[in-house]
Write a protein that binds this DNA or RNA. Sequence first.
DNA 1: CTGTTAGCGCATTCAC
DNA 2: GTGAATGCGCTAACAG
Lengths: 337, 337
Amino acid sequence: MVGLKDVAALAGVSTATVSRVINATSPVNVETRDVVEKAIRDLNYRPNRAAQMLKMQTSQTIGVVVNRFDSPYFGAILEGVDQALRGVGFKTIAEASNETEKGQIDALASLSARQCESFVVHADAVQEDKLVELLQHYPTAVVVNREVPGYETRCVKLDNIRAGEKAAEHLLQMGHTDIATVTGPLHLNEIRDRHTGFTSTLEKHGHALNPDLIYRGNLSPSGGYSAVNELLDANTSATAVFFHNDMMAAGGMQACYERGVHVPQDLSFIGFDDLDFAQFMNPPLTTVRQPMREIGAAAGQLAHALLGPDFDASATLRPFKADVIERASVLNKTIKN
Amino acid sequence: MVGLKDVAALAGVSTATVSRVINATSPVNVETRDVVEKAIRDLNYRPNRAAQMLKMQTSQTIGVVVNRFDSPYFGAILEGVDQALRGVGFKTIAEASNETEKGQIDALASLSARQCESFVVHADAVQEDKLVELLQHYPTAVVVNREVPGYETRCVKLDNIRAGEKAAEHLLQMGHTDIATVTGPLHLNEIRDRHTGFTSTLEKHGHALNPDLIYRGNLSPSGGYSAVNELLDANTSATAVFFHNDMMAAGGMQACYERGVHVPQDLSFIGFDDLDFAQFMNPPLTTVRQPMREIGAAAGQLAHALLGPDFDASATLRPFKADVIERASVLNKTIKN
DNA sequence: CTGTTAGCGCATTCAC
DNA sequence: GTGAATGCGCTAACAG
């Protein structure tokens, strides 16, 4: 390993001088600087970050914990965080948590041991009290897509209740009153919130959701597939179904193809997320768009802002809004003829 | 920051002893060990990785450079690398390169400065001579999905030529002889290889590709969309088109919907990659599957193996094979009736 | 402007 | 079985 002292030796100066030219931390004679720079190039010297971190007690990096890497959802968050931080000279490093509580806590610890100064963590699997502990323990951590009571200023998330409401409103507006839904695991509070928003506005409009028409999905295609098969087997009068994510909607659509039921003529679909492929489905999927990239970027900015003493919490409170993206998977029954 | 010495002080022992109980590096009296462990817990002590790295000159982590995080392609690679390494106690850290030569080189340097011991790098934008330099400079780096002459043992990739051949064979086998293709940027050698394999087998079978039917795409939906529009405008007799990735196939399909041309009745589609959504398109997309997760895992293993002195290069030479996944987007003209 | 020095937190000899 | 001392590569006083 080539170190500062090797450069110093070659350049015939002290390590301090080399350090100075590298970090431009104080003026250096032009000639000596040139000599040093040449030595650096010749030796292909790279500062040892471990030593820098140890010395400076800082790393200019923020760590993000995601459930897994191969997911459009987490990919977008990561990309958002990275974009936001790149601008302020920070690095992003990510670790996958395996979707378990232990994995999420361990990943945070691991990132912390790596001297990350700040964190954005997706902690959907950790118990709330444990999460509060974590938030206390890591004062610069921000959690994405979950709200922790007492720590609202350190959460950046979608307004899932409102998002659920919008899904319901859209369906209602298109003339549907007999509606089914395929949720996700109800222990996730983003799912609960969406469900709450959805059911409450249906109720409010006098079309309360039939409990038999609530299917519990697994957030992957298979869940949508089997839910739709059950729904179709049950021979209900439902004309539309709200899926808590696009993956399940895709699975559900496949079930429809196989059974020859047409979307949206026979059954309308509204998804959630607006993943890339939603627009390429046939029919293109109407869905509730969740701005994951923006959420990631906001989380990154917040995590960075938390580092400064001049942190203004007030500006970060508003949750993100979802929007329904109208495409062609829900039938407009109001112009039925 | 709570350090070794704080623990030592609380436990009434020396830092050496604390270090010993943490790393189980030499026997410690049972009682003292208990005392130390309690102190560690009470103080919530975490070893400082920066210091460990500095001292031990090792980090047990491998760095991977991807173009971007929000891509199913890179997500799968990352996931594969991570899975392979998790098993051997290594950590994975990733950095995004922005798809530029400079970005890719810088990312590698940045990861190296972080004391990553090994690397897997997607370096599609760097010039070959520069890449050779890099490979020399970072003797433990492995490159994915690109072959560098002289460094074949450190490349893990798909056999793109064979993959292109398979695409052609499938189309031929289904009775298509009048074929178009939408490639990607031809400066990428994976694209060139696929194209070579594709055109050569078409030629070999006496159905050489009409140069007018070669469209240069951008690997994203828009590229497929405009290519198909051009193709349709040109009013050719082509009955099938090979897209160099699924994204472009999706864009192309959209163009078809809009113009009322039916896939596969009017025009057959074969894609490349087998992204998640391919099966959910309508019709489900026939495509050439590229096992990215496996490629990532193999790259991770190679990167790790490179660290050991007992490295056997011979086992890692065979490139990965692609397979065509038959779904419903190519018409079987041989049973036309 | 430049050199000398002292740690950052830790693992590891070497004595005991 | 345990403690004292050393140095990994670097930056930041402090002198000159």
